[in-house]
Write a protein that binds this DNA or RNA. Structure first.
Lengths: 349, 349
DNA sequence: AGGCTCTTCTGTATCGTTTTACTAGATCGA
DNA sequence: TCGATCTAGTAAAACGATACAGAAGAGCCT
């Protein structure tokens, strides 16, 4: 009830009750080790003195575990929350974390000097780390790997060999084949690129794509659409607005593509908005497809690749927290979901 | 690069280089305190030995701050992510956290025995805590308050006197007046109630409502609709599905209300879905309103109360992290946003 | 009574840092 | 040349808890 009084430690309480510090510690951590009566007395005295229970940092130091797992996110932490895909992953992860009464530590990715120990990834007291769609070669990954905390990733290509992923290439092939069947031979792919942020949308080269998911999805598309012209366009980082901008650019260009492929659903939804603004009908005038199948994709009628994102979070959580987990590498199933936003390519003039 | 080698501490490095531990510590924390050459040498040796930088827990213990702020969420952590309102708040909070290179520690609310020190709220090493829509009287609040960490809440009624809130009553009055003007005299309010979860939707008394936002919003409604019959219905915890269920129950009842008021947008959106299923048109057959104005509310044409949720997160973050902040109590503006889901009450037969 | 196990509690070392006060030598203005 | 001010570094004491090895006493069996 009453607020903690500064300077009151376990030792203070021990002295007040007249027992050893170990006993007080046990009162909190191993109730079985001491008589109920004494425990009662200790807790009462503690309350009286304004002692709020063992200090978290001290406990973490001595006992060697922090009761929290770190989460490393794509790009800016604040963007992460704008993508329902990421949020779905978090929800799954949180579910498992709750089960093990472990907290989730969301760490901002530092683009700082990796040598200064001041980055969150360095500072964070965590028992393990979940890596969510962090581009290969990001400095924070090096720091994390150097720290030696157990880690699991959503990407098989990260330093750790614990991961939960989908077969990105195969999924993209499935989508590409769908588009090929519909006769699309000229497509624009909306990619995430922080560099294009703020400035106007621009066409990208393969080198501008962060390795990881994006490259693999592109690889699959190329494989399934060997005869198509595939252009890469970015309207900024992964977000709805970037989709609007990037797709808008493509639609207004001289040679309008017959299909626009968002590498994520948020971008694809942005593309749908760009169509709407221009009075174009998705699936008839221009085909739009996404990736991930976030909830909003369904009501928007977006053709996309479904992946069980919440399960991904759950599985990753288990990998980190559940010692009985044996499979360290999981490939989750995906499925092409065809909705109204994709249709046959209009005959070219 | 190479993974951390267990057992290598700051001391080991110090011995290897032939300097004192303090100097090694300084090499990481206060580069200005030692010659660049020596620092270089220390860092090199550290890398060679597989030392990954100062241990986070030890640093936290000794220096007294953890580099993280805790976030206490409504109900289950995993539900939190299903409400875009909560997610928006988090995004704002994350923005500020990033600025101060501080991590966000999401803690599952324990419904456990508050005496066992095993709850996340107890264990967490945090410098401060953000309290987001936690119902009054929740045990975790007591624990938190007892720990004596600086805290800020989205609710003026919590133990701390730092808060960022909206005038809930006034907002509800505005909404209620809108409905009164439209002639609604028989309304159902969809409330959050974990107890109704799983079971069938049910009518609630005032006592079943968690104190905090919900009570105040109700108070405002009553004030603005003095002549109306107001029923409370819950389809479970705060979620889309509960809205579908609760609204469905109300719509199928003998005496159908002319308006359904979701105490949150997610519930209201669920209500819209319930209307859709039954072939009813929102705003004509039945009026539906929400609270919060999440992004999806706009495209759904939902009449609702807009509040700057991301700003709320940002402001709360500042309250916790920015020492130059002086105003400890902030009231953010709200605005009634009228869209197509509200319309005049149909003439009663 | 002697030996055995249980229960309940004690003391102390230790976890890996950062902090504080302090020192030896260099630099400098007068 | 003298004291004052800086610089680059050291030594030892915290920080607040938990782990570990034991010890005193109770209870039980033979």
């Amino acid at each position: 009830m009453c607020a903690a009084v500064a300077g009151v430690t376990l030792k203070t309480v021990a002295k007040a009750v007249g027992v050893s510090p170990s006993t007080v510690s046990n009162a909190y951590n191993k109730p079985a080790q001491l008589s109920a009566a004494l425990r009662e007395r200790i807790l009462a005295t503690a309350a009286e003195l304004g002692y709020a229970g063992p200090d978290a940092s001290a406990r973490a130091l001595r006992s060697g575990h922090a009761g929290a797992i770190g989460v490393l996110f794509t790009d800016k932490l604040s963007y992460a929350f704008s993508d329902p895909f990421a949020v779905g992953f978090l929800a799954g992860l949180a579910e498992v974390a709750e089960e093990f009464s472990t907290s989730l530590l969301l760490m901002p990715l530092s683009s700082n000097d990796p040598e200064s120990g001041s980055t969150a990834v360095q500072q964070a007291a965590i028992d393990a780390a979940a890596i969510f769609c962090v581009p290969h070669g990001h400095p924070s990954l090096d720091i994390l790997s150097a720290r030696g905390v157990p880690a699991a990733s959503t990407d098989p290509g990260t330093f750790t060999d614990s991961w939960v992923a989908i077969d990105e290439v195969a999924a993209a092939v499935e989508l590409g084949e769908h588009l090929t069947r519909l006769g699309h031979r000229d497509v624009v792919v909306l990619v995430d690129n922080a560099a294009a942020s703020g400035s106007r949308p621009m066409e990208m080269g393969l080198g501008d794509i962060g390795s990881g998911n994006p490259t693999q999805r592109l690889e699959g598309l190329r494989k399934a659409m060997p005869e198509a012209r595939i252009r890469l366009v970015s309207g900024g980082h992964n977000a709805f607005e970037s989709g609007v901008a990037g797709a808008g650019w493509a639609l207004d260009a001289q040679d309008r593509p017959t299909a626009i492929i968002g590498l994520s659903d948020v971008q694809a939804l942005g593309a749908l908005e760009a169509l709407r603004i221009r009075g174009l009908t998705p699936g008839r005038d221009v085909t739009v497809t996404g990736f991930d199948d976030i909830p909003a994709a369904e009501s928007a009628g977006l053709t996309t690749i479904h992946q069980p994102i919440k399960d991904k979070g759950r599985a990753l959580g288990r990998l980190l927290l559940d010692p009985t987990t044996t499979e360290r590498q999981l490939l989750l199933p995906t499925e092409l979901v065809v909705r109204s936003s994709s249709g046959p390519a209009p005959k070219q003039l």
